[in-house]
C-alpha cells in the first residue's frame, strides 16, 4: 500500500512549527488496525480537511488528537502525536487539560440532557469562566447560527431540538469553551444548505483565532473552506479486513486540481470505487 507522508506546504508556513503533528500514528481497536502509519502536520490558523470513503478511519484519527479515544474500550494509539511539540500521550500529560485546549464536535449530535442555556454554560462553568454567562451563551449561539431559533426557549431541553439544531448547539457548546483547536467530525452532515453555509462562514471567522480540523464527505465543502486536505483510503489487508491509511496530504488547491495520486484524482472528481 502506498503511504506517502507529504509535508509540502507553502514556504512561509513550512518555516513555522506545526501546531499538531502525527508521526507514524496507527490506531487499533482490539487487535485490528483501523488506521496505519499516518504522518500529518496541522498548522495554526488553518483549516485542515479530512476526506475519504466511509470507514477509512477519519473519525478514529480525529479523536486521537484530543485523546477522546482513551474512553473507547479497546482503542490503542501507537506512534507519536505532538501538540506544540509536546507528546500528547506522555505520562505527565493530563488528558482533561488536552481536551480543554482541543475541543471536539462529534459526528452524531450529542447535546447534554440539560436546557439549551446550560448546554452552553456547562463547559464554560467547569472551565472557570468568570465573565457574563448570558452574553457568552448568546454570542456562542449566534456564531453557530442558532440564536434566532432558540432565543425564546433557552430553558427547554437541548434534546427537544431537531437533529440539525442539536448539531449547531454542539458547535456552539464547543466554541463557548474557547479551545485552541476545534476538531469537527462532519459537523454539517445533518444541516440544511443555509445552516451549512453559516457554519462554513463561522469556520472562516474562527480560523483567525483558532485552528480547525474538519472531517467532511462534502467535496465542495472541503474545497471551499479548507487550506489543507488529507485524503484517506482503506485498503484490504492480508487477513481480509480493511485498514485505513493516508493517501495524500497537501494544500487543498493541489488536492483538488493537481493531485499526485490517481486515487485522489478519482475520489475528488467522483469517479471512485
Amino acid at each position: 500500500m502506498s503511504v506517502s507522508p507529504s509535508l509540502t506546504g507553502s514556504p512561509d508556513l513550512m518555516a513555522t512549527q506545526p501546531l499538531l503533528r502525527a508521526e507514524g500514528v496507527s490506531i487499533l481497536y482490539g487487535s485490528t488496525v483501523a488506521v496505519s502509519n499516518v504522518f500529518l502536520d496541522i498548522f495554526k490558523h488553518q483549516i485542515t480537511a479530512f476526506i475519504g470513503p466511509s470507514g477509512c478511519g477519519k473519525s478514529t484519527l480525529l479523536r486521537c488528537f484530543n485523546r477522546t479515544n482513551d474512553l473507547i474500550p479497546g482503542a490503542k494509539v501507537k506512534g507519536n502525536i505532538t501538540f506544540q511539540g509536546i507528546d500528547l500521550y506522555a505520562k505527565h500529560v493530563d488528558p482533561v487539560e488536552v481536551r480543554r485546549r482541543i475541543g471536539m464536535v462529534f459526528q452524531k449530535p450529542n447535546p447534554f440532557p440539560k436546557s439549551i442555556y446550560n448546554n452552553i454554560a456547562f463547559g464554560a462553568r467547569i472551565n472557570g469562566y468568570q465573565g457574563d454567562m448570558d452574553e457568552l451563551v448568546e454570542k456562542s449561539l449566534t456564531r453557530a447560527a442558532l440564536w434566532d431559533e432558540v432565543k425564546d426557549k433557552l430553558k427547554e431541553s437541548g434534546l427537544s431540538l431537531s437533529g440539525g439544531q442539536q448539531q449547531r448547539l454542539c458547535i456552539a457548546r464547543a466554541i463557548a469553551v474557547q479551545p485552541e483547536v476545534i476538531l469537527m467530525d462532519e459537523p454539517c452532515s445533518a444541516l440544511d444548505p443555509i445552516s451549512t453555509l453559516r457554519i462554513e462562514e463561522l469556520m472562516q471567522e474562527l480560523k483567525e483565532q483558532y485552528t480547525i480540523v474538519i472531517v467532511t464527505h462534502n467535496m465542495q465543502q472541503a474545497s471551499r473552506v479548507s487550506d489543507k486536505t488529507a485524503f484517506f483510503n482503506a485498503a484490504e489487508t492480508e487477513q481480509g479486513g480493511k485498514q485505513g491509511y493516508l493517501v495524500e496530504f497537501d494544500d487543498t488547491v493541489n488536492i483538488f486540481t493537481n493531485p499526485r495520486e490517481d486515487y485522489t484524482r478519482d475520489y475528488v472528481s467522483g469517479r471512485f470505487g
Binding site: R99, R100, N110, P111, F112, G123, C170, R173, A174
Partner: peptide, 8 residues
C-alpha cells in the same frame, strides 16, 4: 464523550 470533550 461530550462532557469529556468540553474539558470536564
Amino acid at each position: 464523550l461530550a462532557s469529556i470533550g468540553v474539558g470536564a
